[in-house]
Amino acid sequence: MSVGIIANPASGKDIRRLVAHATVFDNQEKVNLVRRILIGLQAVGVRNVWFMPDYFGFYDRALEVFTGENSLQMDTRLLDMRINADQEDSQRAATLMLEKGVRCILVLGGDGTNRVVAKGCGEIPLMPLSTGTNNVFPTMVEGTVAGLAAGLVATGAVERENALKRAKKFSIWVNGQERDIALIDAVVLTEQFVASRAIWDVEKIRQVLVTRSEPFHIGVAAIAGSLCRIGPEEAQGLNIVMNRAGEQPQIRVTAAVGPGLMQDVSIADYQTILPGQRIPIVETPCVIAVDGEREITLETEDEAEIELSMEGPWVVDFKQTLSQAVAKGLFRK
């Protein structure tokens, strides 16, 4: 009956505040979000909550208001782990939560944070809450509501089959080894540095692979969204190859590649891809960005392939979960 909370203190302040019109999501606001989540969890009977430790200290800060008559009736604890203030923290925290037997993990962050958590969480469902404006995987959901939904899943009050959806993912293979994953998109850039991580200059994009494609997506995934529709549960993805400078474009689209950042892009070709199919990347040296973050640098001699899989993380469908709970009369006093 326990749940985990992984809140990324670094999300919501990357360079997109500068190159697009993203807002700064300050950490105090995330503290409030955590508090709302805790109230929601408690209301549906969750008894144990594990927190990932982090350099900002969400655990202490969120809990400091719950004293006296406002004390929580839950056991809240920090995982015993060293923090390096890098993304591996979230992955290790997810693995530790798996070992502790938590039944649901609430993730506060963006696509990137969820990607890392997904690397460590195994079959535990995620309840992702967006703390930014450039995300596809997590949704903008009110904290109390997310807490209720996660709690209903964790306690088993709503069965997994009525509450969860399975996300897709990409495996990124480099020289025959699985190097990383992506939940939404993998983007090949004619770039040689990870540097400030985000992508905003579409001139540098050579190839875009997406696990899903919807017209309402934001970020590089929006380029796919402007071509065709592939739902989050459909057994296919999309591979888009961009024009090189000077080439005649096959297709030109306009897309919201960042919050408040519309760009025209020239596409050479695109095709749907199927689970298990390994798509070679079209250019090295390059940088591959996964879920919006430049992550993998490849040299000329490296070979990389990207494979779609239906076995991504389980995700709580909060709307459906809560509807089920109401249908079962769980909120009736």
Binding site: K13, D14, R17, L18, V24, N27, Q28, S196
Partner: peptide, 18 residues
């Protein structure tokens, strides 16, 4: 606070942490 970039919010300017 841990991210000084957060303080940009108070002045209505972009703040980035790198």
């Amino acid at each position: 606070i841990t991210d000084i970039a957060d303080r940009a919010v108070a002045y209505g300017i972009p703040g980035v942490s790198i």
